[in-house]
Nucleic acid binder design. Sequence first.
DNA 1: TAGTGTTGCCAACACGCGTTGACCAACAAG
DNA 2: CTTGTTGGTCAACGCGTGTTGGCAACACTA
Lengths: 193, 193
Amino acid sequence: MTGTTEHQPAARRSDATRATILAAARKRFAADGYEKATIRAIARDANIDPSMVMRYYGNKAALFAVAVAIDPDLPGLPLEPPGEIGRTLVRHFLTLWEENGELTALMRVGATDPAAAERMQSVLREQLIPLARRVGPDPEQAQMRAALCASTVLGLALTRYVLRFPASMALSHEEIVDWLGATVQRYLTAPAP
Amino acid sequence: MTGTTEHQPAARRSDATRATILAAARKRFAADGYEKATIRAIARDANIDPSMVMRYYGNKAALFAVAVAIDPDLPGLPLEPPGEIGRTLVRHFLTLWEENGELTALMRVGATDPAAAERMQSVLREQLIPLARRVGPDPEQAQMRAALCASTVLGLALTRYVLRFPASMALSHEEIVDWLGATVQRYLTAPAP
DNA sequence: TAGTGTTGCCAACACGCGTTGACCAACAAG
DNA sequence: CTTGTTGGTCAACGCGTGTTGGCAACACTA
């Protein structure tokens, strides 16, 4: 046996450093975006040499990819009661965003990097549109309804976590779920105007 | 007389170049954001030497400031009929965004630059909140209601013009005004839930 | 104790950036 | 024709970046 448990790669002494680097990278990417979050700054935060970042993660792009790997896991959401789907979705996204800053990083980078924008779009395509197709009145409108929901949720995230408007940060969780929940519910289920 | 009309600064031969530079700058900033829109690239687009950009605009930050100078002019909007304010506002922002790409540039930069974010916030503070105070039921809720409206409009702009989600770009002007107009109307005037 | 791989630091590379100043061509005024 | 102003190019600077390779210290195995 090489490690503490079977079939596991041996626990290395450098694992702690790896984790420190990753944490610092997440923080920097979320705060500054891709370009302004330099390898040197990340290394300084992690109290190691910049070359270590390269050794453990290959290059900057690969580090970013590892740092923002996340899945909203929308299919796991309960669809009952049908009148509560909007609120459920908004609450889910809200906690998702509060718990990990990776999403803020992804949005900051998506503003200028097409690859990150594509990553965000894939969530819409593979999770939100199918959901809209299942709960909406007309499957043909699923794409439109999902797009409206995405703009609702991302709009709040933009003003609250990226641009950090005080008026948006002042909103309580309850207020957000109440107001945006009703909006998303309407976008998903109401008949087209 | 020095120019073609009185009391005007003389028309200079370089005005055309100045305008070309500014147009190229707007396009690049909107497409790439602040960091990736290099002076060299802007100059190449304008078919002149990078040093000319400096001569005419001082430095990169000043060029950006000139390139994104814009005022949504919300106070000029008609508040009648009161049931149409939401639609009016959404329509106004929509044409504003379609007509000039400066707003896209401002959002791309605001994602990583606090100064640009502050510029956007000033619109909310000086124009949207006062408007919400006038048309809303309770002046104390004006800040909250304006924040919700801002997130609605900016959310659409984000998914449609910045991230360029196909599902969002596929929406017609009528669909946007219908769906988002009702949302904004509710955020502004409906009693708190 | 000798040997081998791992963990880390240091110095340097090549590159692209914003920015500067010297220099040249065209034109207008005397 | 001469002189001064304007519009423009060219080559270079200093800097910070991502990235690389060499080298010292350590930890573990035999």
